[in-house]
Nucleic acid binder design. Sequence first.
DNA 1: GAACTTTTGATTGACGCTCATGCAAAAGTG
DNA 2: CACTTTTGCATGAGCGTCAATCAAAAGTTC
Lengths: 391, 391
Amino acid sequence: MTRGELSPAGTAALFQFLRDGRPRTRAELSAETGLARSTVAERIDTLLSSGLLKFSDKANSTGGRPPTTVAFNPAARVVLAADIGATHAKLAVTDLAGDVLVEEDKVLDIANGPEIVLREVCDRGRALLTQAGRDERDLLGVGIGLPGPVEHLSGKPANPPIMPGWDGFDVPAFVRGELGAVTLVDNDVNIMALGEYRAHWAEHEHMVFVKVATGIGSGLISYGRLHRGSQGAAGDMGHVRVPHDTDVRCRCGNVGCLEAVASGAAIAAKLTEAGVPATSSADVVTLARNGSVPALQYVRQAGRDIGEVLATAVSLFNPSVLAVGGALSLAGEHLIAGVREAVYQRSLPLATQNLRIVPLHSGDEAGVSGAAFMVIDHALAAGQVESLLTQ
Amino acid sequence: MTRGELSPAGTAALFQFLRDGRPRTRAELSAETGLARSTVAERIDTLLSSGLLKFSDKANSTGGRPPTTVAFNPAARVVLAADIGATHAKLAVTDLAGDVLVEEDKVLDIANGPEIVLREVCDRGRALLTQAGRDERDLLGVGIGLPGPVEHLSGKPANPPIMPGWDGFDVPAFVRGELGAVTLVDNDVNIMALGEYRAHWAEHEHMVFVKVATGIGSGLISYGRLHRGSQGAAGDMGHVRVPHDTDVRCRCGNVGCLEAVASGAAIAAKLTEAGVPATSSADVVTLARNGSVPALQYVRQAGRDIGEVLATAVSLFNPSVLAVGGALSLAGEHLIAGVREAVYQRSLPLATQNLRIVPLHSGDEAGVSGAAFMVIDHALAAGQVESLLTQ
DNA sequence: GAACTTTTGATTGACGCTCATGCAAAAGTG
DNA sequence: CACTTTTGCATGAGCGTCAATCAAAAGTTC
């Protein structure tokens, strides 16, 4: 009787050991998993020929033949990631480590509706694949971030305020029709949170990410996983009440909403009123960078206001990392300084003693990186790897 | 070659299918799992003899011999659960469905320190076991809730404000020494949240539970799992700022804390000041039940204040259930009415359209029930069941 | 360069788990 | 009582895992 051909479940289980990217020798794997050397060897062979593993450097010899090591091979497949905003999009092809291989910024108008926008994304995606030297058969999946609430399970936008024509549109079905690949969708703040978390803070359990731009939103990571909420609406911060400024009217109809007080749009309005013309977050950032005193003051105060709300989030959610990103965070350290000021003042010592309040480390790649991780986490999870072994 | 004796992993996997308590026939299990009839039969035998399954009613005949059904047997083991408060404790022995078999309320002072308190809990626990007709060998584990922050992984209280002598005490080691059973510990609000969730809202993904008594705290359930936070301090609501009343000083040194405005202690103080003497939450409840107008007004206003903070929690966390419990919630519908008023006013429609704001369904059993579920979930999870099969 | 050490790949038989099958007894229905 | 369906028991085939062995490969040490 010859030895068995393959055990998909067992092989996938071994692969999970190697997901972290650290190279290991066969002997180490045998010891770690408790499997026999022959079993490990056979499974390694399967994984090597599927491409999911690759040979790594030889380890140091201890007097005899040095052991070869094998490691996760991020180049086995690629992911197409799209971070779609209201007026432009960033596309990228990443490897399985979430590292961007090629990327591209595109001007597009989300208001053109899903067919036009998504077809363009798919067309440019194909071009990027080619540019990266890969093709559609290498696609592990497609990850898309959209600027509005998304029901993640179905991939359909849910009552998005700024995406005419997108409500209920079956994004995964459309993209699958174009590119033939599994497609996952989430809102842009969530994928930024995921990208920042997985790229820089994965050893922490809980994180809060806040994006301050034209609007204000946040993403929550609980036990390393995005907390999406029951409507996919978790992280909404824009219409939380700020503990002062209760007279400011918000477009939502309420008063004192954070977005009406501390968003890029709100600051621009305040500046204009103060005689310093500004219409957008970008204007505010430019002014702040050029040393405009009122701009700096307003940005810092916005940081404090946001910090007031984040103090509540910190008390409730008790994260160990609070990351601040979005266009307004590009106006130097003033925003985050205001956030720190308010959070440390308003939170109990227990909640802040191990809390790090940091600017976004990922820069503007956070979105596509997170979209990629969303796909990678799904497709490389336990129970999904088997399908990658046959090919 | 005879058929194999047992496959612990596979048998445990079959058991997970039956965890929901629904009786099933062997044929159904074979179809659901894809396993052969003979394999299912053998595993069922193993589970029956371990006691984890029991025979259930016969299903209806379709013309021939009616199939027997098997179901999860909650009586296979028992759990000792303790919900320890500042001045008294509730102990219970539950079955594996979390149902209370026997229970007991005890007066005790947490300030006596861990040895005295825990020894008494263990002694009474043994008595309760006997009363339930079981003994220590039937113990699946012990679950304990404590009135302060707990590092759940180690089971050690972490800087508890009202538990002198408990800081860093190794509760699981002590209890294991007394009763020889696995012991899990968490704070009392978390176990109440878990108890309420598992007993009444398990089909929902996300829940927020708030306990309003002498203090104010909350427990968060994310994807059916307690979100404990990085210091085990998640859910702290007492020192979140209320968007008005910013002049009220709190014992924590800050101003405008929710606890200084809306807790049972705060209401009692306000009533006393208004000429209606009251010193505790219980006094407030009694007054409110007797129709004291100022008491009703203050309770309702406390509900609004708490609702203001919960509105933020709802926006951020986007639960589908918000459960309100704690001593003050016993003062009729006034507290929850205030909560509803503020939450619905201050939250976006997307977050509230599927939100239910409900009083605690579990009553004062929520704590022990949650402590039991904490143990059950841990011990009956994938990978833990195997150890129960050998015996 | 030779002897030694350690890893690797290939081979083998033993063993245990799962499956499909068959059969007789059990326990109902009509 | 004939019929139907479930159940328990037995059997051999197939497959995966393991332990053991051996020879080749690839370094280190003297």
